[in-house]
Design a binder for these strands. Structure first.
Lengths: 357, 357
DNA sequence: TTTCATAATTAGTACGTACAACTATGTTGT
DNA sequence: ACAACATAGTTGTACGTACTAATTATGAAA
């Protein structure tokens, strides 16, 4: 037979599960329970200790024992999980620094992990965060242009009442999710218009096919071309993916795209600085010089952009600020506030990779 | 004042940490403890309950209370805390990436925080990690050349059986701590010898005064000068700190040091690339050119070193590897193995900042 | 109505006692 | 030599009492 304190704890567990007690309300004092169950106060305390270690109730000296039947328990330190595609490369250090700068002022700890843009890793990470729960998550979507196989896990986060927020890319399948993103469609337009303003008319583009950013930048790109009455040729568009980004310029369609440039194209819109750098190498290899033969514009304004030769003209967004906004938004969500999504604009940082015609 | 059961628990934790009790052996019965501490058996039980929930002891009814002095049970997800001075600047992204690459293959989560080289922040972080415990910690020491005010917290980690490991710098006050560091004394010697090999004899140095790395590099620096029969002049040494690193070259002793260089000094050993870059700016300002007027060698071989003009000759250590070694060592410590410290060597990456005389 | 002091209420700490359940060990009987 | 039993020692459960510390409610005073 179970000991009495076990029996009392079980009875209380059942009551709590059945919803006998309201959420934040105090419904059971030790004195009352002592009478109700006909046991000593010590035994009641022993039972409640079990519930407390399960996180079902919270005891507050002088006040009462509260059923924490619902959302969050906010015990001192707030645990925030951050899932990005990469941690320490490219523009991510800046974003992470922004996030950290906000979290460090609050009483927060940041658990950082990387997906390397693989949904399989995203799945593993989400499962870990579900197993040892956090108070909130900041997530950079993985391959957001493709149907995401981990939607069920995100819905589990919803059920567990763990707030989460997307940065850079999010999943359209998940309705009403909050996100902090750049206005990539507008960015695509701005890139084309910046080139057109310098007299370029034959404009090609390289885009990433598995990210929503790639699709949107392409969308803005082609919309702007149409708006300016410039031709949109399929053969002037080159697509790459996470998996072939290191090699696509040297093989298959990428190689064909490159060899077609001379004489057909004045300017190129690049998905981001990382690819722009690879492209510049490939162009040099092919005997084309930037910006004399081809002008170049890209996205992100990473540290590389100001360093390479020629220096890259690149669209910029405030990366630290980006992280700070995301972090403070998430903290508000954790404390129960509703938050709406933010969309941030791009600004051209003009350098040497665009030539006037 | 702490309640008695807390005091008893703390005393027992200390004893266990100090190795008073053998591992599997039962060494403490409630009756004995009751007499030893002069408290009631209930109070003893309350204390032991704390130890048990920490996994330090195991109670077996009818048998005794056993010190489980060994590895803690690896239940599911392993939480690893990482405390560095900075997260996203300089060489830290590489180190963090190394750590992450190991942790991600195991079932680990990484909680990342930065001290910005302030012991007050180190204190806050350690308190947080004690409050919501992790399975292990990788810590970069803060101002390791100065007496550390948070030693008591580190000893608490010992008592709690939470393994921790230092990288880059550690605290000599903490005996028998494990660390993964570079051989800074040898580095200091190598820097001087590399300059001397190019014919430099009048060699000055800039070092950080609040890190042990600074002291050791200086130690190797001056030992090498003496070994080569070269003069070691105090006025050829410039010290800076975390707090004045942005400004010291423009004021006070730093300014005086700079203005003394011309005509008195052939070559400079710099604490690291970050300071070397600032120095190069200051030298240009002062009308001195590198390497024509002054040769320069520094430490860390950061990404900057290959980019700036002139490109910096810098001592290098494998930063990713550094993080990987630290992480896998910690994981072994978490599973109960004893680990010894590692010291890694430096290798000169020669570029353009050293001129032959 | 606000402010402040006080009382009442509630959980936390600490001690004590008694007995139950279990384990280890030694003793006895076969 | 082996099994059954008894016993001492250990932790677990349960109750009781008394007091402390924190919070909340109350009521008087301003």
């Amino acid at each position: 037979m179970d000991p009495k304190y076990q029996a009392v704890a079980d009875a209380l567990r059942r009551d709590i599960a059945a919803g006998v007690y309201q959420d934040g309300e105090t419904l059971l004092t030790e004195a009352e329970l002592k009478i109700r169950f006909g046991v000593s106060r010590q035994t009641v305390r022993q039972a409640i200790a079990l519930l407390e270690s399960d996180g079902l109730v919270i005891r507050r000296r002088g006040s009462g024992t509260y059923v924490s039947h619902g959302p969050r328990k906010r015990t001192g330190v707030v645990q925030v999980g951050v899932i990005t595609t990469y941690i320490t490369d490219y523009i991510f250090p800046s974003i992470v620094r922004g996030i950290e700068s906000v979290l460090s002022t609050e009483n927060c700890m940041m658990s950082l992990s990387a997906t390397y843009n693989h949904t399989s890793r995203e799945r593993v990470l989400l499962e870990r965060f579900l197993e040892s729960p956090v108070d909130g998550l900041i997530i950079e979507g993985t391959k957001t242009a493709l149907p995401n196989p981990n939607i069920a896990l995100y819905e589990k986060l919803w059920e567990r009442n763990i707030p989460f927020l997307f940065i850079n890319g999010f999943y359209p399948q998940l309705h009403h999710s909050t996100h902090v993103v750049t206005d990539d469609e507008a960015g695509g337009r701005l890139a084309v218009e910046s080139l057109a303003a310098k007299g370029h008319t034959r404009i090609a583009g390289i885009f990433k096919s598995d990210d929503m950013q790639g699709h949107l930048r392409y969308q803005g790109f082609s919309a702007a071309l149409q708006g300016l009455g410039l031709p949109v040729r399929d053969e002037n568009i080159c697509w790459f993916t996470t998996e072939n980004k290191l090699t696509f310029l040297g093989e298959g369609t990428g190689k064909a795209f490159l060899s077609r440039l001379r004489g057909h194209v004045d300017a190129l819109v690049c998905y981001n600085d990382e690819i722009a750098l690879r492209l510049m190498d490939a162009l040099k290899e092919a005997g084309l010089s930037v910006p004399e033969d081809v002008s170049l514009i890209s996205f992100d304004n990473s540290a590389y952009a100001g360093i390479c030769t020629p220096r890259l003209s690149s669209l910029s967004h405030p990366k630290d600020e980006f992280g700070r906004i995301a972090a403070s938004k998430l903290l508000k969500m954790i404390s129960g506030e509703k938050e709406t999504s933010s969309v941030m604009g791009w600004q051209l940082v003009a350098r040497d990779s665009i030539r006037s015609r």
